[in-house]
């Protein structure tokens, strides 16, 4: 899937809660409307990123799984 993004972080190999903490720090640094691509290998990140975006109000544009990688595209909402 080709979703345009403005910044990319790799949380591969990181365990809970580091992917959401790294994601929060990265999104904090974006302008509203910009998109972050986050890659993780923690299977729990699928549920966690959905919960994180639901709670924080940022938009989970797309998510995909390729091999052992979970990729998320998040648009900063506010």
């Amino acid at each position: 899937m080709s979703v345009p993004f403005d910044q990319e972080i790799d949380c591969s190999g990181l365990a809970c809660p580091m992917p959401i903490i790294r994601t929060k720090k990265a999104v904090d640094g974006l302008q509203v409307g910009q998109v972050l691509k986050m890659t993780a290998t923690d299977p729990g990140s699928v549920s966690d990123m959905n919960a994180w975006t639901a709670r924080t109000g940022h938009e989970l544009l797309a998510q995909e799984q390729e091999g052992g990688k979970y990729v998320f595209f998040i648009r900063k909402y506010r």
Partner: peptide, 10 residues
């Protein structure tokens, strides 16, 4: 874990 996660959740 819960405290650091909570901050990430705003």
């Amino acid at each position: 874990l819960i405290a650091t996660g909570a901050v990430a959740m705003d």
